[in-house]
Design a protein around this nucleic acid. Structure first.
Lengths: 153, 153
DNA sequence: TATTGTTATACTCTATAACTATA
DNA sequence: TATAGTTATAGAGTATAACAATA
C-alpha cells in the first residue's frame, strides 16, 4: 500500500473523468468555434503536432486505434475540406494525409483551448512546480507506455 | 508558447492514448481474471474507493456520466451478484448500491492491476520524484476540475 | 409537486472481418 | 503475394427524452 501510488492513480482517474467526457468535448469545440467530434479533433491535432503529412497507418498507430476508424474520419474531413491527400514521396502507391489551411486553423483552435485550460489550471503555480510537473508527467507517460505494452507478467 | 505547458498537455494525451483503449482494458481484465466492461470496472472500483454503499445519482455524479448509464450497468452487475441494493438509512424511499463480497474482490483485482502498472512504471523512480508527482498530479486534477467546470470565459 | 431513478431510444466511438488495390 | 487501405458490419459506451415511483 504505497500512498503516493494510490494518490497518483486516483489523480489520473480524476483528470480523465473531468477531461474525457462528452460535455467537456462540447465545451471545447464551442470555445474553439468548430464542429468536430472527438476522433476528428484527435486526428487534426495529431497532424498539427507532427508538423506534416502522415499516412493513415501511421496515424492509427500513433493514436492506437484501428485503421478503418481513421479512414472513415479522414474521408469525412477530406470532404469537408479540412484534410487532403497528397502523394507519398517515398512510396509512389501510397498517399499521405495533410492538413489544409482550414484544417490547420481548426486544429490550432482546439489545441489552443486545451492549452488554455491547462494554462488556467497552472496559473497560480510556481515556475518550479510547472517545470517539475512537465518533467515528471512526461517521464510517467514514457514509463507507463513501456509497462503496459511490454508487460512483465 | 510555454514549453512546460506543451509538454504537460502532450504527456497527458500520451497517457490517455496508452491507458484508455480497448486493448489495454482487455489486458487489465485478463490480468485481473474478471469479465467486466469499462463502465463496470469504473463503478465497482469507485464503490471500493468510497468504502461504502452509494446512491445511483451519487455514482453518476462522481463519474460524470448520466444516471441511466449507471442504472443499466448496476442492474446487470446486480444480476451477476457483484452488487446489491440496500435501503438508504437517511431516506426511506431510496436505495444504495453496495458491493457484495464477490464484487469487492473483482474491484480489488482490477485496482490491483492498475496499481501494478503504475507501480511498475515508477519502480526506478526516486522516492522524491514519486512524492512530487503525487503532490503535483493531485493538485493538477483539482485545478483542472475547477478550470473546466467553472470556466472563466 | 420535487426528487430520484428507470425504460426506451438513439447517437458516438471503436473494433473485427472481408474485400480491394497496388507495387 | 505482401502491404496498405477501404467498405461493411457489429458491439461498446454514453447521452437525451419520456416515464414511474415515492416522499
Amino acid at each position: 500500500m504505497d500512498p503516493d501510488l494510490t494518490t497518483i492513480l486516483a489523480a489520473y482517474r480524476r483528470l480523465v473523468t473531468t477531461l474525457n467526457r462528452a460535455k467537456t468535448h462540447a465545451q471545447l469545440t464551442e470555445a474553439a468555434g468548430v464542429r468536430l467530434d472527438r476522433p476528428d479533433v484527435q486526428i487534426l491535432v495529431h497532424l498539427l503536432d507532427e508538423g506534416g503529412p502522415r499516412r493513415i497507418g501511421a496515424i492509427a498507430e500513433a493514436l492506437r486505434v484501428e485503421s478503418p476508424h481513421v479512414t472513415r474520419h479522414v474521408s469525412a474531413l477530406e470532404r469537408r475540406g479540412l484534410l487532403e491527400r497528397v502523394r507519398d514521396p517515398d512510396d509512389g502507391r501510397a498517399w499521405r494525409i495533410a492538413l489544409t489551411q482550414h484544417g490547420a486553423e481548426a486544429a490550432d483552435s482546439c489545441r489552443r483551448i486545451s492549452l488554455k485550460w491547462f494554462g488556467g489550471a497552472l496559473a497560480d503555480w510556481s515556475d518550479h512546480d510547472r517545470a517539475e510537473l512537465a518533467r515528471l508527467l512526461d517521464r510517467l507517460a514514457d514509463d507507463i507506455q513501456d509497462e503496459v505494452h511490454i508487460p512483465s507478467g
